[in-house]
Structure formats: C-alpha cells, structure tokens
Design a protein around this nucleic acid. Structure first.
Lengths: 229, 229
DNA sequence: GAGGATCAAACTGTCGACAGTTGCGCAGGC
DNA sequence: GCCTGCGCAACTGTCGACAGTTTGATCCTC
C-alpha cells in the first residue's frame, strides 16, 4: 500500500487552466488511490483534508468528488458526506452484466466498421501483453484492449456509458489482484488467445458473431469469480 | 413552450440546507426546462445567467450542470462551456439499446423476487394510465411503470445506471411528442396490454421469460422510431 | 459504573471576488 | 464591399470566508 504523494504545486500557483484543470488532476490522483486500494473501501473522504493535501481550495475537490461519484468510486450519504464505495457481490455482478451488454453491442458496431488502423491498435496491444510480466500490467492492457473495441464502435453514447463503469471494474480487479498476487501463465495465454480470436471475428465483419464472441469472452474471463468481492 | 419561472427565493435567503440543497432545486428546474424543450438542444447555458435567474451564486449552479452532464442532458466543450445536448439518431439508438439491456436484466431479478407490494404498484400505475388523457401523462406513467420494475429488481447498480439514462429518454420522448401531439387510443391500448402482460410474466417468476418479454416490449414500443430525432 | 447532556471540532453548502481566457463586434485597411 | 486586427464584454476556474449542521468526546448526574 504505497502512499501516493499528491502532485504538489505549492510554488507556481496561479498556473491556471493549462488545459488541465486542478479538478482533473485531483480526480486522477484520487481515482488512482481508490483503485489501488490506498484508500480502502468505506473510508471517509474529507474535502478540506484533500484540499490541503493538494494545496488547493475546496472548489476543485468538490468537483472531483462529484466526478468520482459518477464513476461509481465514491458515494455520498444523505448529509453530503463522501466515502469510498464498498462494492457488494451484487454490484460486481451488475457491473459485469452491464459491461457485457455494452461491449457486445459495441462489438457489433465495431465489426461493421472495422479497418486496418483499429486492427493495428488491437494487435499492438496483444504484442505488449505478450511481453507483460506482472498481473497489474496484464489487467491494464486487458482493459485497454476492451476500451479500444469500444472506441472502434464509434458510438458516443456506448463509450460514455462504458467509461462510467470502467473505473469500478478497475477497482474490483485491483481488489482481486491484492488477493492473488501472482500472474498465472495459463490465464495470460488464455487471454491472448481469446483476444486474437476477437480480432478475427471483428475483422470478419460479422456483427452477430462479434457480439456473441465478446459476450462469451467477458462472461468467462472477468466475471467468473463475481462473488469474490 | 411555456417558460418555467425559476423558484424564486429573493426573500428568506439563508434558509440553508433544509435537506433540499439549492443545487438540487436548480437541477430539477433546469432538467425540466431541457426535457420540455424550453431550452432547445444545442443552446448555450451560462452559469452567471442561471445563477442570477435563481438568485443564487454560481457554486450550486456549477454542481447542477455537472449533475445534468452525468444525466446526459448537458455537454461541456473543451473549454468548459456547456450546452444542452443534441441527441443524434445514433445516440437514441444507443440509449435504447442500453435501456433494453438494463431493464431486461432487472426484469429477470424482479421476477425472482416478485411480491404483492410490487404488483400493487404496477397495477395502480395501469389504473392511472387508463384514466390518462394526454400523451404527456401517458409518457410519464409509462416511464414510471418501467422505473417500478427497475426498483423491483432491488439491484442498486442497475438502478443507478438506469437513472443515468432516464432523463435522456424523457428528452427524446418530449421531442417526439412535440412533433405528433395527439394521444392515439391505439397506442394507449397497446401499451396497457403490454404492461399487463409484463406483470403476468413477472408474477410467474420465470426470469428468462421476463427478460425476453421486457426486451421485446422496449424494442417494439419506445424505440421503433429511433431514427426520428 | 452507566447514561445522558453539553460543548467543541470538523465538515458541508453557499457566497462573492478575482484572474485568465475566449468570443464577438467594431474599426480600419485593401 | 470584404477581410483583418483590436478591444471589450462575458464566462470559467479557483479562492478564501461564513453560517448552519453533524459528529465525537468530555463531563456531569444518577
């Protein structure tokens, strides 16, 4: 549980809005802390504390927390206090089922408009994954692979919805990882094979087959241990 | 296009946090204006203007706009300017497909835990709809019926996701309504029949049948004119 | 020693202000 | 008349402050 030092900016204040708002920076930092488990599920989050840690006012912190609420990583109680979300087994199951719907729908669209650039992206992701040595790295690349398929669909709304649940997937994957640390060669090999097959199905242009393939892939890979959270 | 006067509170300021935050009030007001078309798709939204109209500072307005962004009714450009969303045909199609997934999944859960109280809620909704005389009223009750099924699933995450797209559905339904004003008796009758059948399927406890029935219902009813937006 | 009242610290919601940026209109040049 | 550049107005991001509320802890009473 290495503490993540907040990106300090005590000097060089007033470096306003270089296209990166403070709220964005804080959001990324908090998200990282949550999905890596530095902030444990259920722990309280205090606006003044975070503001002080980042040497900013509460305004951008508030905005960050609302953003993280949208991402499902933070929950607010009736009186406005915020905590890190505690995912239940039901939550995880729901998230996975939503994810499966979104990705399979997107895969259908992606198959219809598949082209070389997309294939290139996906294949280079596989190449990277072949070199990966840690479970963390594999998880990151796995999500990136699926994100690429979402992007390839070109469907704005599907992508938005997917992005809204992706952080929760990362949180859950992180939780799992902290239980079983090791990177199993079997799992890696299975993932690579499955991803290669997905590319082939997408390249075939068969939307129905693509939908089905993604649905099966997600059901088998990410969500088989849905009750573990 | 009747203008909706903002809930004034010039006097009796400092009536802080009676469980209803200003942000909440403003959010509801803006949402109403957007889904009813008072604010037309693509029109700019200025924080100071809205703040002045409600006689509040920009802080709660900012929070409202972020909330509406989450609901998909407001979009922000790269420099932070906000506008009312302009739904494309693709957007509507995506929203409908997401909705269908969410509701059919929820219906499966709802069928497994169906009980008298839920049936009561659904049947009284139908009773209300039988009395309805305007298209607006029917739409509202229709959404309420589906919301009740979502609630009946008891799945926190599914409900959250559904709530996140529901306002967009209302926006789109509102847009459609403003095109064809009249309430068709045929449509009303069809809806009532379909809803009664849904209750029966749910009451049977057959999760698979419930999922299927909801999927078919949504595909046929709300989204058949998906390209109309 | 247990229970309840009291008080202080901490926190949230909201406000008004300021600085930097963006966009638009107007004036001037071709 | 059309295009270009400048200046002003409006807007966003962020700040520090204040008021009311909630929480925890302390202290007093029984």
């Amino acid at each position: 549980m290495t503490a993540i030092p907040p990106p300090q900016r005590s000097s060089s204040r007033r470096a306003v809005s270089r296209r990166k708002t403070l709220a964005l920076v804080i959001t990324e930092h908090l998200r990282q802390e949550i999905v890596t488990g530095v902030r444990s599920p259920g722990s309280k989050i205090s606006e003044p504390t975070i503001a002080a840690a980042h040497d900013v006012s509460r305004a951008p912190v508030r905005e960050s927390l609302r953003q993280l609420e949208r991402e499902g990583l933070v929950v607010f109680d009736a009186v406005g206090r915020s905590r890190v979300v505690q995912l239940t087994a039901d939550d995880v199951e729901d998230i996975c089922s939503i994810r499966a719907s979104l990705e399979s729908t997107a895969a259908g669209h992606a198959a219809r408009r598949f082209h070389a650039a997309i294939e290139q992206t996906l294949r280079s992701n596989i190449a990277e994954m072949e070199e990966a040595t840690t479970l963390d790295e594999v998880s990151r690349l796995d999500l990136a692979f699926h994100a690429a398929i979402m992007e390839a669909s070109g469907r704005r709304r599907l992508i938005t919805a997917w992005r809204a649940i992706e952080p929760q997937l990362r949180l859950w994957l992180g939780t799992l990882q902290r239980l079983r640390e090791a990177l199993s060669a079997d799992v890696l090999a299975a993932t690579l094979t499955a991803h290669r097959q997905l590319i082939d199905v997408l390249a075939s242009g068969d939307a129905n087959a693509a939908r089905k393939a993604v649905e099966v892939h997600i059901a088998s890979w990410v969500c088989e241990s849905g009750g573990a959270a």
